[in-house]
């Protein structure tokens, strides 16, 4: 089993890596590229902690092979802030105490960003169903929903 060379784009930057053909994108991001903001909670697509965008589409990076990143554009939590300026979702999560342990937070932020790109003015129910694949065990989701709604409102008025 020889490794495969992959050329891709991550958070807007060109990236090359080699990976095993059966290696999940999650492992590539974490172990080969040092993007440990992408978290592994289950490895089977059941928790959403490893959420990233591939060509704008929200996916679990544990359910994508690294080799599938060839020619793709990938976005992770590490690419959300612009230099010193946090994304409105990131700031809202801090302001609303929408994280406790914080391990689900990167995945939820990436997922919420994808939601607001598609639907800038979601109902609470739409937020909850969109984020149903992102497990959070600390917050009971209440403050997460509020933070997403606050960020959405800010982004609409920006």
């Amino acid at each position: 089993m020889s490794n495969i060379h992959v050329t891709t784009s991550i958070n807007g930057d060109p990236v090359e890596f080699v990976c095993a053909p059966d290696e999940p994108l999650l492992d590539v991001l974490r172990n080969r590229l040092g993007l440990t903001g992408v978290k592994e909670g289950c490895g089977t697509g059941d928790c959403g902690a490893c959420s990233v965008l591939v060509d704008g589409r929200l996916v679990c990076s544990c359910l994508v092979l690294g080799v599938e990143a060839e020619g793709a554009e990938i976005s992770t939590v590490e690419g959300m802030a612009e230099a010193e300026t946090l994304h409105p979702l990131q700031q809202a999560f801090i302001d609303h105490a929408a994280l406790q342990c914080g391990v689900c937070t990167p995945g939820i932020l990436v997922a919420a960003k994808a939601l607001l790109a598609k639907n800038p003015d979601p109902t609470d129910e739409e937020v909850r169903f969109w984020l149903a694949g992102n497990l959070c065990r600390c917050t009971g989701y209440d403050k997460i929903v509020r933070a997403v709604q606050d960020a959405a409102a800010q982004m609409r008025s920006a």
Partner: peptide
């Protein structure tokens, strides 16, 4: 089928 993330695939 699955979550929003799974729906993407």
């Amino acid at each position: 089928i699955g979550s929003t993330q799974v729906q993407g695939r």
